[in-house]
Amino acid sequence: MTRQTKEIIIKYVFFTFSLVSIIVLGLIVFSLFREGLPIFGKVSVKDFLLGMEWYPTSDPPSFGIFPLIIGSLIVTVLATIIAVPLGVMAAIYISEIAPQAIKEILKSVIELLAGLPSVVLGFFGMVVVAPWLQDTFDLPTGLNIINASMILAIMAIPTISSLSEDALYAVPREFKEASYALGATKFETITRVIIPSALSGISTAVMLGMARVIGETMVVLMVAGGAAAIPGSIFDSVRPMPASIAAEMGEAPFRSAHYQALFAIGIVLFFLTLFFNLVADYVSHKFRQVGSGTL
């Protein structure tokens, strides 16, 4: 075998390896469909997605996941509302204002926060935040939307903050200098020049933070309270989609309708996060700044 053939073979071996991610993505879809699609022989897609009642173990069972979707969306939105200002402002602090030493420490803090296992945060929400909420607001339970949202916000902050920081850091220095040269204050430079230039990066960060929150399991499983109903206030319990899957899969008989329905929830969840990720990818490519000369 000549060296050239050998080199070509090596190249194709690596090419094959690089396809693994896509293959796995395909296998995920395959597995979810294989186990989950049969449910739609028993329930229509419309009744599944928009049905108001999730009673998978009643007789007859009902598989309406609308309350679960609402549960997921509400904690995601609320967590985003909490996490975005904190995360973005922290990113601004790190990239534009903080002295070098504090910058390094804060970056490590955010990285460690990202490293906290979700079960640990769930545990914290359960044994610390929940009793406190219950006592303070005199609630029947502290395991509710607001608790879950706060803990989820903690999980989203590292994603939002570190990606926003990258975006802010990438703003060319010329822009800042031009602004200062016109007599703008640091505040004006940040809000009128730096943030607008970094906006697509920050949007991507927010999208990815939301994708992370919507798919997060242990926190909502342990902290959201588990009520499969449309909530009336932020102090009510909900049962987001991942929580339902994790909580019920252990009890659902193999290939029963319930088991299939849980996989079908997985399909919904998969495509929901896929959508978020594709949008984030699109935004980051569409509006990416190339060099300092082009805008």
């Binding site: 993505l25 995920i28 294989r34 186990e35 991942p242 899957i245 899969m249 969840l269 896929l274 990720n277």
Partner: peptide, 20 residues
């Protein structure tokens, strides 16, 4: 594909592991 894989929720990975 890699970005999308990175975004797959952990519980969906669990379902994938179970199913596959």
């Amino acid at each position: 594909g890699i970005n999308c894989l990175a975004g797959v929720p952990s519980v969906v990975f669990g379902l994938f592991g179970l199913g596959f």
